[in-house]
């Protein structure tokens, strides 16, 4: 069974936040940004500096050129939130990563260095602290592009200043079911955050997973960003919890019915497509958090929701129907 190793259970795993990730974007000073580098030597040196820093003796990080990967591997990294899609369409890009992919550094993407830490649960502070240490380590061998006026200089002015992005993957089943996502989006935008769907199919979203990220990177310190994230995501968690409880109180029978139907399908089907599985898992997650059903841990439901997508399962050999059979089997084996 293919599982996302970075989604390991931890003390902070909850009912609503699936995972937290922090990115720090850095560029070598007085060097063109990635898309404007013409000399091969400069591109190679940018990569080699990071490789020497992070994959030297005693550090068990690995290095791979993106070009050497199969399209299935690339898709899996994109969907698993490890690399941005654009890293796949560019020449010369590479990735330094830990075995479980929790730590990674994308090389020569939009920025020369994109340092990332991702973990299950809600923990922006720890994610940031690891990224900061990685950046310091790298800064020991590469001078970063920095100005007093604009801070860390990034290829996109949308990341300039701290060069920091915090993203929180959330399961907002209650708010989505009560048609509140439009309001949520408006209020997040006002407080300097963006929200997008994790899964969508021909631009129609499904699965109720959302990624909330800060849009401000300039004029705020790293600590300001962490506090804003904690405040905003904290409020969203409370709002989601209250909505779930109210929904359950007002529609007890129909929610219980839908949770058990979802369970019935997941526990018994022999062939299941990714979209159907993800939607039923979302309903099961709601049921688990409301104490309606106890079929496995909440974090296992989240891991399944991400692991059973078509992109994640593309590496399994065979036809689509054969993969639908494996998917059904994988879920049946996990559910009690």
């Amino acid at each position: 069974m293919i599982m996302l190793d970075w989604l390991k259970d931890n003390a902070l795993s909850g009912d609503i936040v699936v995972a937290t990730k922090v990115n720090l974007m850095r560029n070598a000073e007085k060097t063109p940004f990635s898309h404007k580098i013409k000399e091969e030597e400069i591109a190679e040196l940018i990569k080699r500096k990071a490789t020497e820093c992070f994959t030297g003796d005693g550090r068990d990080l690995r290095y791979s050129e993106i070009n050497d990967m199969t399209w299935q591997q690339k898709n899996r990294l994109v969907e698993g939130q490890i690399i941005p899609r654009e890293l796949c369409s560019k020449e010369n890009t590479a990735l330094i990563y830990s075995e479980d992919y929790s730590i990674s550094v994308a090389l020569l993407g939009e920025d020369h260095y994109n340092i990332q830490y991702i973990k299950a649960g809600f923990d922006p502070e720890e994610c940031f602290s690891i990224c900061r240490n990685m950046a310091s380590l790298l800064n020991g061998s590469v001078k970063f592009a920095y100005s007093d006026r604009f801070g860390y200089l990034t290829a996109s002015p949308m990341n300039v200043g701290t060069g920091m992005k915090v993203s929180v993957l959330m399961h907002l089943k209650g708010l989505a079911a009560s048609n509140s996502m439009r309001n949520v989006e408006v209020s997040l935008t006002q407080s300097g955050f963006s929200i997008r769907n994790f899964y969508s199919d021909e631009s129609k979203p499904y699965g109720d997973l959302y990624i909330v990220s800060n849009t401000r990177s300039l004029g705020v310190t790293e600590q300001d960003i962490l506090e804003n994230v904690r405040g905003t995501v904290g409020r969203l968690i409370t709002q989601e919890k209250e909505t779930r409880e109210r929904l359950y109180k007002d529609n007890t029978l129909s929610i219980e019915d839908r949770v058990y139907r979802a369970y019935g399908i997941l526990k018994n089907s022999r062939v299941i497509g990714s979209r159907e599985a993800i939607q039923d898992l979302s309903m099961l997650g709601l049921g688990k958090s409301l104490g309606i059903i106890d079929c496995c841990s909440q974090s296992m439901i989240f891991r399944l929701m991400i692991s059973v997508s078509s992109a994640m399962m593309a590496e399994i050999k065979g036809t689509e129907i054969e993969r639908n059979v494996s998917r059904a089997e994988m879920i049946r084996n996990v559910l009690k």
């Binding site: 850095r26 007085k30 060097t31 400069i42 500096k49 800064n139 590469v142 949308m158 300039l218 300001d224």
Partner: peptide, 24 residues
């Protein structure tokens, strides 16, 4: 877009790495 055009100094990586051009 950012509500500001001036960096507010917080974390600064003080390690003094090399300039890539010099390194080349």
């Amino acid at each position: 877009t950012q509500g500001s055009s001036t960096h507010k100094e917080g974390e600064v990586q003080k390690e003094n790495g090399q300039n890539i051009g010099d390194a080349v």
